[in-house]
Design a protein around this nucleic acid. Sequence first.
DNA 1: CAGCACGCTTGACTTCGGTTAACTTAGCTC
DNA 2: GAGCTAAGTTAACCGAAGTCAAGCGTGCTG
Lengths: 224, 224
Amino acid sequence: MPSPSVEDYIKAIYKAHADNGSVATQELAERLHVSAPAVSKMMRKLSVLKLISHAPYQGVELTRAGEKLALEIIRHHRLIELYLVQAMGFSWDSVHEEAERLEHHISEEFEDKIDELLGHPTACPHGDPIPTRAGTIAPITDRPLALERSPARLMVKRVSDEDAELLRHFQALGVTPGTAIELVTQEPFEGPLVLKVGGKRVRLTPQAAKKVFVDAITTSEEDK
Amino acid sequence: MPSPSVEDYIKAIYKAHADNGSVATQELAERLHVSAPAVSKMMRKLSVLKLISHAPYQGVELTRAGEKLALEIIRHHRLIELYLVQAMGFSWDSVHEEAERLEHHISEEFEDKIDELLGHPTACPHGDPIPTRAGTIAPITDRPLALERSPARLMVKRVSDEDAELLRHFQALGVTPGTAIELVTQEPFEGPLVLKVGGKRVRLTPQAAKKVFVDAITTSEEDK
DNA sequence: CAGCACGCTTGACTTCGGTTAACTTAGCTC
DNA sequence: GAGCTAAGTTAACCGAAGTCAAGCGTGCTG
């Protein structure tokens, strides 16, 4: 059974890969709040464990075993987040940290139980897909709202879960997963985006809009 | 914030004290499945942390700070156990291990939330009292069933939670906290105790009867 | 294409929690 | 009260995961 530390590294590699495509030593160091040498050393260890493939000075890549482990931890994380929100009444801005700790310490039975109690959900409170037990995950099709350039009707799919402050802001604006919004315009000189959310006009800085992920509205969602 | 390891030692000291009155190095080593030297070293550390007072070769005693820490961990443990059973539908013989891990990793907010969701309970599924947040605990008044010598009507208060097999046995017999039982007799030569539980006669080995804790029946419980 | 800067890795050391082996100490037995 | 035994402690060491300082490698820049 891998240590929490190993799990954190594997998860960070998975996320860096998903976010950037690349996985640099330094980036992992920043994500994990450790020094670069700590990362280098751990990479060797993970190589030996066959969780990554790693040619020194080149990048790092998860093996299938590493990916499965990453997805299992992420599954734990997202199921826990959703359970905390839906079953226990926590607010969506307060569950990330708790899940971050608990994800390393729950049993398979616990995982299965909350999955069952939640009715086999497919997304966490922030809209991220929940991996299956088998180690697969729905592909991401959404794009950052910040990249949308022309007015359009859009569906909020996900928001970044790591900044509680920002999550409260999104909630106050009504920008939450499953909400249909309309991008009206962007104010000049990299100014805020102007949106229509539930009939109200709201403004969102480009910074914040990077953390909101949207998709074109599908016909089945038209009734919103 | 103390490490899980420190918490485990403090909890073991508390329990050894409660069970035996004394706290020997060797006993802690057995309870924690570590070597005696590991205990010795940790005792020095806990002394420095002012969680215990420890004169070498003499026993060890929790300070008030140590006791508070022990009670906080035990509170976590018992609240988690109860939540797993009552809110999530786990069986009472399967929750000890899960609680053993999770007790070290939940936040104060989580602790408060389950306390609230459970309606500020006073006992875990095995009948052990739940310490308060302030670090107090209801005194134990029950005695091991194995020590009862004469026929009597008794109330099951607690059962030991550490052996899942035994818990299933107790459940099958109907010997659970809150159940009134009647001690009929003990068969000769340290034979099993004969009980009446819910109208049925059942037999319990002295070994098992050591793990059941009973009290005289109070008038308010007469209606059972 | 030489040189250099930056990023990555190696090396030497720390802390934490554990081990085994060797040695004290307390308390019991004669 | 001397001596032994069992329990407790100290010493030397290990592995995990981290640190800082120093040394490589890659690839961009002039």
